[in-house]
């Protein structure tokens, strides 16, 4: 007997077997007396249908979303194989990170104030001499000049606004931590002049003048408060 004939016969045989089985079982009336279908059952089936109700496109939305995601990911990976694209993406990521995430691995910024009276300038480059001292109770302001009439200004003021608003040439700025405070060094190699500025919301220290970058930093780290 070939498969097709056998399967046809199977279908018919199962129909007969089903009628035989039904004939052995209690009638619908007998059954409904034993376990009647009530309002409770109707609510049950309605709630089952409600729970299982899903719009056709929602059924597959999860799968479609995963496929789209995989395709996008594969496309992105493929694009990243190109060195130029890779470099551009990397550059943009660095830019974004620099713009929005400021990670400072140095000592955390202190929020305390500075005592002007106890603040001393510990180092002045060779050749510079004090020309003018405009210091008072609220500020420390000194002007130094060397033999070539190169000026060096050192100012310590009890205001954070100066630090925030102090003008800087963003192209030559190097942000750094100075004496435990946020600060920056701005230096122009062409004119050999620059400034170092640091502080917090309570005070600002600004050193500017015609001297080397290293000397500016050395002056900065040597401005200390005597305890």
């Amino acid at each position: 007997m070939d498969d097709k004939r056998f399967e046809e016969l199977l279908g018919k045989a199962f129909e007969i077997e089903q009628y035989n089985e039904i004939s052995k079982e209690p009638t619908a009336d007998e059954l409904s007396k034993a376990a009647p279908f009530t309002e409770k059952q109707l609510r049950q089936v309605q709630s089952i249908c409600k729970r299982n109700r899903r719009l056709p496109w929602l059924k597959y939305s999860g799968r479609v979303a995963s496929i789209v995601l995989c395709v996008c990911l594969a496309g992105f990976c493929g694009m990243m194989l190109n060195p130029k694209i890779r470099a551009t993406v990397s550059e943009n990521i660095v830019k974004l990170v620099d713009e929005y995430i400021n990670i400072d691995f140095s000592e955390s910024t202190k929020e305390e104030n500075i005592d002007i009276a106890k603040t001393v300038i510990g180092y002045i480059p060779e050749g510079f001499e004090l020309r003018e001292d405009l210091s008072d109770d609220e500020k420390l302001s000194c002007i130094y000049v060397d033999g070539n009439e190169n000026y060096l200004f050192i100012d310590v003021v009890q205001s954070g606004e100066v630090f925030i608003s102090y003008e800087r040439d963003e192209h030559n700025v190097t942000y750094m931590n100075i004496n435990g405070y946020d600060g920056y060094l701005s230096y122009d190699e062409m004119t050999a002049q620059g400034s170092v500025c640091w502080g917090n919301s309570n005070f600002t220290v600004v050193i500017s003048g015609f001297t080397s970058r290293d000397e500016l930093i050395k002056i900065a780290v040597n401005i200390k408060t005597i305890k």
């Binding site: 209690p26 376990a35 056709p56």
Partner: peptide, 30 residues
């Protein structure tokens, strides 16, 4: 239109399900 068809199809399904449950609930319990 698609939404309407989907809702209609869901309603038909519910009717079908209620018919099955109503007709064979006692038999299922048996």
């Amino acid at each position: 239109m698609l939404l309407f068809e989907a809702i209609l199809s869901e309603e038909t399904k519910t009717e079908k399900a209620i018919h099955i449950y109503k007709s064979y609930y006692s038999y299922m319990i048996y």
